[in-house]
Amino acid sequence: MAGSTAAVGIIAGAVLLTGGLAAVGSASVAGQRLASAADAAALAAADAASGAVAGVPCDLAGELAGAFGARVEACDLDGLVATVTVAVSVGPVAARASARAGPPP
Protein backbone atom coordinates (compact mmCIF):
# COMPACT_ATOMS: atom_id res chain seq x y z
CA MET A 1 0.00 0.00 0.00
CA ALA A 2 2.79 2.43 0.84
CA GLY A 3 4.53 1.69 -2.45
CA SER A 4 1.43 2.48 -4.52
CA THR A 5 0.90 5.74 -2.62
CA ALA A 6 4.50 6.73 -3.31
CA ALA A 7 4.10 5.83 -6.99
CA VAL A 8 0.94 7.94 -7.28
CA GLY A 9 2.76 10.84 -5.61
CA ILE A 10 5.71 10.57 -7.98
CA ILE A 11 3.45 10.39 -11.02
CA ALA A 12 1.41 13.39 -9.82
CA GLY A 13 4.61 15.37 -9.27
CA ALA A 14 5.85 14.49 -12.76
CA VAL A 15 2.52 15.55 -14.29
CA LEU A 16 2.59 18.89 -12.44
CA LEU A 17 6.21 19.52 -13.46
CA THR A 18 5.44 18.70 -17.09
CA GLY A 19 2.43 21.05 -17.08
CA GLY A 20 4.48 23.86 -15.56
CA LEU A 21 7.29 23.42 -18.08
CA ALA A 22 4.77 23.39 -20.94
CA ALA A 23 3.26 26.67 -19.70
CA VAL A 24 6.69 28.31 -19.44
CA GLY A 25 7.62 27.08 -22.92
CA SER A 26 4.36 28.40 -24.36
CA ALA A 27 4.91 31.80 -22.77
CA SER A 28 8.45 31.90 -24.16
CA VAL A 29 7.25 31.15 -27.69
CA ALA A 30 4.51 33.79 -27.40
CA GLY A 31 7.09 36.34 -26.21
CA GLN A 32 9.38 35.64 -29.15
CA ARG A 33 6.50 35.91 -31.63
CA LEU A 34 5.44 39.19 -30.08
CA ALA A 35 8.99 40.55 -30.28
CA SER A 36 9.09 39.54 -33.96
CA ALA A 37 5.78 41.31 -34.56
CA ALA A 38 7.12 44.49 -32.92
CA ASP A 39 10.33 44.35 -34.98
CA ALA A 40 8.49 43.81 -38.26
CA ALA A 41 5.96 46.53 -37.52
CA ALA A 42 8.68 49.05 -36.61
CA LEU A 43 10.66 48.21 -39.75
CA ALA A 44 7.56 48.64 -41.92
CA ALA A 45 6.74 51.99 -40.32
CA ALA A 46 10.34 53.21 -40.72
CA ASP A 47 10.41 52.10 -44.36
CA ALA A 48 7.20 53.99 -45.05
CA ALA A 49 8.47 57.07 -43.20
CA SER A 50 11.64 57.09 -45.31
CA GLY A 51 9.71 56.66 -48.55
CA ALA A 52 11.21 53.25 -49.32
CA VAL A 53 7.68 51.79 -49.24
CA ALA A 54 4.46 53.54 -50.17
CA GLY A 55 1.83 53.92 -47.46
CA VAL A 56 1.05 55.46 -44.11
CA PRO A 57 3.70 54.28 -41.59
CA CYS A 58 1.45 53.40 -38.66
CA ASP A 59 -1.13 51.77 -40.94
CA LEU A 60 1.55 49.49 -42.36
CA ALA A 61 2.72 48.70 -38.84
CA GLY A 62 -0.83 47.72 -37.92
CA GLU A 63 -1.15 45.46 -40.95
CA LEU A 64 2.06 43.61 -40.11
CA ALA A 65 1.23 43.31 -36.42
CA GLY A 66 -2.16 41.88 -37.41
CA ALA A 67 -0.42 39.24 -39.51
CA PHE A 68 1.27 38.07 -36.30
CA GLY A 69 -2.04 38.13 -34.40
CA ALA A 70 -1.08 41.24 -32.45
CA ARG A 71 -2.41 44.79 -32.33
CA VAL A 72 -0.54 48.10 -32.34
CA GLU A 73 -0.92 49.97 -29.06
CA ALA A 74 1.40 52.85 -29.91
CA CYS A 75 3.15 54.05 -33.04
CA ASP A 76 5.40 57.10 -32.79
CA LEU A 77 7.47 58.68 -35.54
CA ASP A 78 10.41 60.95 -34.83
CA GLY A 79 11.65 61.91 -38.26
CA LEU A 80 12.63 58.62 -39.88
CA VAL A 81 12.73 56.66 -36.61
CA ALA A 82 9.63 54.60 -35.80
CA THR A 83 8.86 53.27 -32.33
CA VAL A 84 6.07 50.70 -32.25
CA THR A 85 4.47 48.93 -29.29
CA VAL A 86 2.38 45.85 -30.00
CA ALA A 87 0.28 43.71 -27.68
CA VAL A 88 -1.45 40.37 -27.69
CA SER A 89 -3.71 38.76 -25.10
CA VAL A 90 -2.44 35.45 -23.76
CA GLY A 91 -5.30 34.15 -21.69
CA PRO A 92 -6.12 36.73 -19.02
CA VAL A 93 -2.76 38.51 -19.45
CA ALA A 94 -1.86 41.12 -22.07
CA ALA A 95 1.74 40.85 -23.26
CA ARG A 96 3.50 43.84 -24.83
CA ALA A 97 6.67 44.39 -26.82
CA SER A 98 8.26 47.51 -28.30
CA ALA A 99 10.75 48.02 -31.09
CA ARG A 100 12.50 50.94 -32.79
CA ALA A 101 13.68 51.09 -36.36
CA GLY A 102 15.22 53.73 -38.54
CA PRO A 103 18.50 54.88 -40.02
CA PRO A 104 21.65 54.51 -37.93
CA PRO A 105 22.48 57.45 -35.67
Rank of each mutant, 00 (worst) to 15 (best):
D59L: 13
A40V: 00
T83A: 10
A49G: 10
P103M: 08
A35D: 05
V81D: 08
G25E: 06
A94N: 15
A22V: 09
C75R: 03
I10Y: 12
D47C: 09
V90K: 10
G20Q: 07
G19S: 11
A41M: 01
A44F: 01
S28M: 13
T83P: 07
A97W: 04
L60N: 08
A61H: 00
D76H: 12
D39V: 01
P103S: 07
G102C: 05
A37T: 05
A38T: 01
A12C: 06
A2Y: 14
A40S: 10
G69F: 03
A61R: 03
T18W: 02
V24Q: 15
G91F: 07
I10F: 12
C58L: 00
L60Y: 03
F68K: 07
V15C: 07
M1E: 11
T85F: 08
A40D: 04
E63R: 13
L16M: 12
D78Q: 14
R33H: 08
A74F: 08
G51Q: 05
A49I: 00
A46E: 00
P104F: 12
A74N: 14
A67W: 14
A87T: 07
A30Y: 00
R33K: 08
A45C: 01
A14E: 05
P103N: 12
V8W: 12
G62A: 10
A94S: 15
G51L: 05
L77C: 07
A87E: 09
D39M: 01
V53A: 14
A70I: 03
L80K: 09
S28W: 14
S50L: 09
P105F: 01
T18P: 01
V15Y: 03
D59R: 11
A22F: 11
F68D: 11
L80H: 10
S89L: 07
G9T: 07
M1P: 07
A35H: 07
L60M: 09
L64H: 05
A30T: 03
G3V: 06
A45T: 01
G66L: 02
A87G: 15
E63M: 13
G25N: 06
A48C: 06
A46F: 03
V56H: 15
A2H: 15
G79F: 06
V88L: 12
G69M: 05
V53L: 12
L16S: 12
A48M: 03
S4A: 13
G62N: 11
T85D: 01
G69C: 06
E73N: 09
V8Y: 10
V90N: 10
L64F: 11
D59V: 09
A74C: 10
S26Y: 13
V86N: 02
P57S: 09
